[in-house]
Write a protein that binds this DNA or RNA. Sequence first.
DNA 1: CTTCCTGCAAACAATTTGCAGACAG
DNA 2: CTGTCTGCAAATTGTTTGCAGGAAG
Lengths: 146, 146
Amino acid sequence: MEDNSSRVDSILRKLRQTGLRITPQRLAILKALSENKEHPGAGEIYAAVKAEFPTTSIATVYKTLAVMKTIGEVLELEFSNDYNRYDGNTPGAHPHLICVKCRRIVDPELASLDEMTEKLASETGYTIISHRLDFYGVCPECRQKE
Amino acid sequence: MEDNSSRVDSILRKLRQTGLRITPQRLAILKALSENKEHPGAGEIYAAVKAEFPTTSIATVYKTLAVMKTIGEVLELEFSNDYNRYDGNTPGAHPHLICVKCRRIVDPELASLDEMTEKLASETGYTIISHRLDFYGVCPECRQKE
DNA sequence: CTTCCTGCAAACAATTTGCAGACAG
DNA sequence: CTGTCTGCAAATTGTTTGCAGGAAG
């Protein structure tokens, strides 16, 4: 896995390549994203950024996240009830394990998904672009508290 | 697969069991749901219901859908951009195949998911309650139009 | 310099809620 | 009868947008 700084660096490289500007706000947002492995929401990223860059606005956070999505460097996990969560560390599609009690989201190891995808494509004739696989459950910590 | 009327009947049975009331509005919503296999949104259900029951309100549709979710007879597919979609025919968790062009959603056949779930549970210590598996792609019809 | 970015506030849209009257059981 | 359900309208909330000024390159 890439460490924080190399992750930020590779995103910066991609921004330059694409002709997008590197502003202090964007840097702070990227730093906050790469330091938080917990799939934060826009509000959490905003809070972290504002701590050291108080003039930042939530709109800028959203706009920056939108740009990152577009260039494929951030994965957005949509929820219609809860707020959306963002993953800046592993931008490719991968399974998530969501605790329904504490709402923590972790990235489990899981093979055999590629195989499943190929089979689906050949059986249905669809061109598969991406996927979303979320498991909902109760994490060991929350179960203990019951 | 159950046909429409037996599907509605089994939901009605569940409603009675749970002491919930059967109103004309609820009947119309259930009928609209069971007749539409295309994972409609609340607005589409509302339109269908209003066609033969013009006084119905969208709030009632949402409230009824919430009840159906609670008793486990309707599966809600959440989206934060697009509106949520509802599946009244196959209320248990199952994979979906979503065309990113026409936004149609179909239910593909797919085994080997139970196996995957068990493995995940034993490896992480989580109690798995449910899951969500969405594949995003382009359906054969849309690909042809490109 | 020029264009893109920021930050504020207002706009949005799907969904939810409060409440008074209606009606299922 | 009684408690639940309906329907209206207003509220909610995360996210998006318009626009004037600011700054990256």
